[in-house]
Design a protein around this nucleic acid. Structure first.
Lengths: 192, 192
DNA sequence: TTCTGACGTTCCTGTAGTGACATGTCGAAA
DNA sequence: TTTCGACATGTCACTACAGGAACGTCAGAA
């Protein structure tokens, strides 16, 4: 049996923009703020990427300028074709199951530092996860209170974050214990 | 190019190579096989990236050619400087906490498809996670049996995968139920 | 009035990542 | 002997991404 086979179908910035515009028209600047705040942990994007992509989407007829404002502001809205593309992506294109994981890569090579350093590293990771988890927990009531029709998806995304951070935290603790157990069974020279 | 002007922020392909070479010398072709098989879901890399990076690492003095074989084969090994850099990266450089998540991005916009489609999507995600989990579970005894000194880190990485997939699966089931509950409370028109 | 700061877009440079193609060596089979 | 497939490295063009400089507009404060 071969290791998982998957295809990487990139370009989700495009669909992030379509998704945001499906919830109302906005300018590049507006969208940039959304990326800086609410979408930062999900799909970070920079201004140079964003404006470029908006231009390409407009050329492709997926979005169009629906209003112009002061200072050259252009508000974009989704076209029919854009909405169709968004739906198609959501339903038909399989999501990426796995992505590059800096952390996992490190774990593969933790053996080259001392056991003590490896344990300290994992404890730090657990602590970071705990902090993030607590932060998410803080904003949970705020999201829950927002009872617009769509907010169920906001809650689902938040819950993912909560579960992910808790998992990471428990894993880090388990891993640190595992290293300790391994060390006491077979004490190796501290190699760094 | 001197080591001084060599940038070391981000770019974990570099450290993946150093990590692999820390476990024994290997040629570009050997390393490519490792990326295709065991490192595929952690840090995918292509051949064009790999050979280029090997050249740059050699120029920077972090690795060196330790043997030459037939068909122009060059086996690389880690230098002292390379090992030092690997240790530095592991211990000093903080890992990225968050990365792009295609899946979460989709959840944010699930509202634009019908409730039925959204539920189906989440169930599919749960099923995929379950399959991956089962696959990982299958290879668990193989990893456990390999009792070299370093294998504890292999086990830790595997455990991360197991916990991650279980978390994802439980979350998808929870989310599907959540959507169902939301729908029965406030039945909305199927919008697609 | 002038200055400042937020708004808003455009462009630039450099690096990272992808897929395809080009080049060549070698062993074994037909 | 020819040919084919695995081995092995190298290069190319293109896209994605990051960071920021440059530039103009407008509202309100000093």
């Amino acid at each position: 049996m071969s290791i998982l086979e998957y295809r990487i179908i990139g370009m989700s910035l495009r669909h992030a923009l379509l998704g945001l515009l499906s919830q109302g028209s906005a300018s590049g600047y507006d969208l940039l703020k959304v990326f800086e705040i609410s979408l930062a942990n999900v799909w970070p994007a920079t201004q140079s990427q964003l404006y470029g992509e908006l231009g390409r989407l407009a050329d492709a007829g997926l979005i169009e300028v629906v209003a112009e404002g002061p200072r050259g502001r252009k508000a974009y809205g989704l076209t029919e074709a854009g909405m169709a593309e968004l739906r198609r992506w959501l339903v038909e294109v399989p999501p990426e199951q796995l992505h590059r994981s800096d952390m996992l890569l490190r774990v593969f090579f933790l053996g080259v530092v001392s056991t003590e350093q490896a344990r300290a590293y994992l404890e730090e990771q657990g602590a970071v996860a705990t902090r993030t988890h607590e932060h998410l927990d803080t904003i949970r009531p705020i999201v829950a209170e927002d009872d617009r029709d769509l907010s169920v998806y906001g809650r689902i995304a938040l819950e993912w974050g909560l579960r992910f951070t808790r998992m990471q935290q428990e894993w880090a603790e388990w891993a640190a214990r595992e290293i300790e157990a391994h060390t006491s069974r077979a004490p190796s020279e501290t190699s760094a």
